[in-house]
């Protein structure tokens, strides 16, 4: 994982992981993410985890922690390139938190729900298929 004392800015080609903790966030027939995966709730930013300098095990550890914290099942993760998150008003900024120095936010969502849905559709269109966690059945 990144050194919490030396967090670098996010490069355009960095991969960011968004964890899937609800069945309604992806299509089970083809594992494509639904816009709902990228829809902020209550806030106007969306949490993602940088894959930079993180092993697969470390990324999944973060995913399991996110699911546990929300009392949810971890269905997987969808990766998206940082450059594809820079849509309209959206920007990606490093926001390291305790236990996850790779934590970042996609910021700049408008407060209007229809506008949020539109941006979420564009993010979902560019994000990778949902990858199930290791050893999932």
């Amino acid at each position: 994982m990144l050194d919490p004392d030396q967090i670098p800015p996010i490069d355009a080609d960095e991969q960011l992981a968004r964890f899937v903790v609800s069945r309604s966030e992806f299509r089970r027939n083809d594992n494509t993410p639904k816009p709902q995966l990228f829809l902020p709730y209550r806030y106007v930013e969306l949490s993602v985890t940088r894959r930079r300098e993180a092993s697969e095990d470390e990324i999944w550890e973060v995913g399991r922690a996110v699911a546990t914290q929300r009392d949810k099942k971890l269905y997987g993760r969808s990766d998206i390139c940082a450059s594809n998150c820079r849509v309209g008003p959206l920007v990606v900024v490093p926001k390291p938190i305790s236990g996850n120095p790779n934590h970042s936010d996609i910021e700049g969502f408008p407060s209007d729900k229809a506008d949020q849905m539109s941006l979420a559709s564009k993010l979902a269109a560019e994000a990778g298929e949902v990858i199930p966690p290791p050893n999932s059945d």
Partner: peptide, 8 residues
């Protein structure tokens, strides 16, 4: 009863 919608 509000319908928020977005198409792509």
């Amino acid at each position: 009863g509000l319908l928020y919608w977005a198409a792509l």
